[in-house]
Each structure stands twice: as C-alpha cells, then as structure tokens.
C-alpha cells in the first residue's frame, strides 16, 4: 500500500581533514529503489534568508546513502543538513542532522612525511592534502631541541629544501598541518631523523 515513506534515520557527519560527508541509514522498501536528496542551510540562511534551504544537486535523487558536502560547507559557521527519501511518487518527510555542523570540528590528522638527506641537504616530502592546507615543519639538530627551527610550507609539489647539514650529527624533523580557514593545527607527525653522509641518504 501507500504507507507513508519513513524519513532517513541515523543521519551523521564524517569530517576529516576538511573533507565533510553526510551519511544516513538506508530506507528499506521491498522491491523498490529508494532515492535520496540532501539540502543544507547555513547560519546566514537561518538568520537573514527566511530559514531557506539550498539543495545540493550532486546529491539529488541519488541511491547512495552518503553525500560529499565539502564544497558547500565553505564557511566557518553552523550548518543544518537534512535528507529525504523518494520512491516513485512517494516522498518521505525530511530527516535532519541532530544539532549543527561547524567545520571547525573537523578532525585533523598529522601529515604523511618523508625526510631525505641528499648530500648535505635536509629535505622533506609532504602529502598534498588540498588547497586548504599549509604545513608547519620543525627541524633541529638532535640534542639541540631548544634551537628548533620552523618553516611554513604551502607548495608540496616536490621535495622541499629545509636546510644544509653539517656532516656527523643527526637532524630531526616533524610536521603538522595548519588550516587557515579554521585557524587550527593537527598534531605533529612522528619525528624522523637523518644524517648527512657525503651525498647518500642514511635512515636512522
């Protein structure tokens, strides 16, 4: 029969490293394909635009139970999100995310990092995490933690030159990400140490 279609449940956000995904539990209707549509509402819409909602066209009438909302969560304010189901002409009520989502709560993971000694030169290779990310790289001569140096890295297309090394002592490096839009840092990566050896990389 034409029982009312239940609204999607267990609506939640998965947000890591400024990539935000809305997920929900599937609505089960035997023998039917259920489709879902997602809308968002920022603080501006709530307070200045009659609480209007904005559809995300990439997540209109989709069969998946996940939607990438990263492009639309592009301000550091509180957002509402909602999902509804459609089967043929039948349509459910909106299921809403409990509470707001603000991207400032995204979880930031330490960056993948590889430290290289190329002759007497200390270099670091960092994972490209997207335009929102910069990297704060700290490096020091082992045992001289008090004389730690810092370099902010924005371009990670190839090995970034940190400094020249004296032959002999170990040089250690660790890095954290920095997201300007939310003014937050990740925790630091594992420390990696290398030593200059006349042009050959030596891992310790």
């Amino acid at each position: 029969g034409d029982a009312l279609l239940p609204a999607p449940q267990n609506i939640s956000i998965l947000s890591t490293n400024m990539k935000h995904f809305l997920t929900w539990s599937p609505v089960i209707v035997q023998g039917e394909t259920v489709r879902y549509s997602v809308e968002f509402q920022g603080e501006y819409e709530r307070e200045y635009a009659n609480e209007s909602w904005i559809p995300i066209c990439e997540c209109s009438l989709i069969t998946a139970t996940v939607c990438n909302i990263t492009e639309d969560i592009s301000a550091t304010v509180a957002y509402n999100l909602r999902v509804r189901a459609d089967v043929g002409a039948r349509r459910s009520e909106w299921g809403a995310l409990k509470g707001f989502f603000n991207r400032i709560t995204t979880s930031l993971t330490p960056p993948l990092m590889k430290v290289i000694a190329d002759g007497y030169h200390l270099l670091v290779e960092l994972e490209d995490m997207g335009p929102a990310f910069q990297f704060c790289v700290l490096y020091w001569k082992k045992g001289q933690e008090s004389r730690m140096q810092q370099k902010v890295v924005k371009e990670v297309s190839s090995a970034v030159h940190l400094d020249t090394m004296e032959a002999g002592p170990d040089y250690c490096v660790k890095a954290q990400t920095y997201v300007e839009a939310i003014n937050r840092n990740s925790s630091f990566s594992q420390t990696q140490c290398v030593r200059a050896q006349g042009g050959r990389s030596v891992w310790l």
């Binding site: 968002f40 920022g42 603080e43 501006y44 819409e45 307070e47 200045y48 635009a49 904005i54 995300i56 492009e71 639309d72 592009s74 301000a75 550091t76 304010v77």
Partner: peptide, 11 residues
C-alpha cells in the same frame, strides 16, 4: 550555492 558560501563567510 557559491553566494551562500560567500554570505556565510561574510557573516
């Protein structure tokens, strides 16, 4: 959607 992004950033 882009206007919403700008408006929320301005807010």
């Amino acid at each position: 959607r882009k206007i919403s992004s700008i408006a929320n950033s301005f807010l």
